[in-house]
Design a protein around this nucleic acid. Structure first.
Lengths: 238, 238
DNA sequence: TCGCTCAGCTTGTTATGACAAGTGAGCTTA
DNA sequence: TAAGCTCACTTGTCATAACAAGCTGAGCGA
């Protein structure tokens, strides 16, 4: 046998999940059951389960068992900054809610100041919010706005609980630049987003510019890769 | 101690990596050294290392040791389908090469046929290529083109080894729709892209439309999340 | 000097054993 | 009946032990 035992076991379970033998939310065999079924030690059975968890296919709860990960994904459209996330999600049949985690004013860090085109340590508002999808954590958004901006930016920013740009609230935003990347959950984020350590997360780091080409808002959305994806459409026409 | 030993150890190492005590490519202490330093069993030391690997911070090589993951990322611009990946990468100081993994004609699967607007099981060309960045695997791209398309599409598709759209080769592409999502590496892909099982991967699934709004090319680029990110810019102007 | 072998390092796989801690069902008790 | 407790089952943490397999360099022999 070239392939390790724990790989054969996890691959077999993975196929069963893909075929539908175990459906979304189903409970997988316990470690003890795997030990008996495949006649292996608990370490090997645990390793097989760990493989599935690291692939995002399952999630383990102490005292309860191991369950197949629910798959429902939200597609968030970046094609136009005028589309509301709320509309996207309602159309996709997912209920959602926002939770305000923090709102404060603070001196801008170097990277935030650079993005907003202001002097380092200038005062900025910082808003941190949690998006829940069907009750479960889906994404965390942290955004910054200079306190020097007047109407209509500041009051709207203080009120707004949506995602992720001011353009969605009728604020005149001309351009929205962004970078999408992907990381692994560290110990802190894994607790926040209710995912195992190392789970794939998407990071959307954006900066919104007003009609006079001045940066207005900067922030990043950290979302669970198993619940979020971004769609976009570009045209080559000038 | 509420936090497990293996978490304390991996978190300590993570901080040392972030501070720069261990730099990109440096070798981390071996399991045996960790056992002595922290006075723990090999299981605990291994678990600590596994935590770092699952977070994408380190990678282990049998017989050699555990090394801090190189961090260099390529930013690929999706703002305009006219930008060449080659230019992006050259500007970012990364050498690259393409490797043709497969080129064949085959009946179209249901999802491919739907994207290309053709009948299921129509004949399509399938091209699979590997992108190497500084010698190491970076991404795999699989793209489909209907064999019924004539000039200039087919001959250019057969020749082209670039990434990921025909627009980059002077073929008239009017619109490029895409979805970016993120998954974990399964056993196969982890071997292909030289990453540990469960490593975060970005998937860019795209469809290119010609000037008469007909779909021309469909494919997906599966890239290592530690080496790739996508940038985009959208305008709200009509 | 060149090339080969092998010892000694590394991580990978696997077994056995033990206790901790969370969950939930069922029983006991007020 | 209702509240609370116990117990069985679950995953999480951690130790000791052994062998497999990949890598590297020292040392030997040609």
């Amino acid at each position: 046998m070239a392939t390790p035992l724990h790989i054969s076991i996890s691959e077999k379970l993975r196929r069963q999940i893909e075929v539908g033998e175990y459906k979304s939310g189903d409970r997988l065999p316990s470690e003890h059951q795997l030990m008996e079924t495949f006649n292996v030690s608990r370490i090997t059975a645990r390793q097989a389960v760990a493989n599935l968890v690291s692939q995002g296919l399952a999630i383990a709860y102490r005292g309860k068992g191991v369950f197949v990960t629910p798959q429902k994904k939200v597609t968030y459209s970046l094609s136009s900054p005028l589309v509301f996330l709320e509309q996207d999600m309602a159309r996709q049949g997912i209920t959602f809610s926002f939770e305000n985690l923090a709102f404060e004013s603070m001196p801008a860090a170097a990277d935030v100041a650079a993005e907003l085109g202001i002097v380092e340590k200038s005062e900025v508002y910082r808003q941190k919010k949690l998006l829940r999808m069907d009750g479960a954590a889906g994404a965390v958004d942290i955004s910054y706005l200079s306190t020097e901006l007047g109407e209509p930016f500041v009051p709207l920013f203080q009120r707004q609980m949506t995602f992720p740009t001011l353009a969605q609230n009728g604020i005149p935003v001309e351009r929205l630049d962004g970078v999408i990347e992907c990381t692994h959950a560290d110990y802190d984020l894994s607790g926040y987003l209710e995912v195992p350590l190392g789970h794939a997360l998407m990071v959307y780091r954006y900066t919104a510019y007003s009609s006079d080409q001045q940066p207005v808002l900067h922030g990043s959305t950290i979302s669970r890769a198993d619940r979020f994806c971004y769609s976009l459409s570009t045209r080559s026409g000038s």
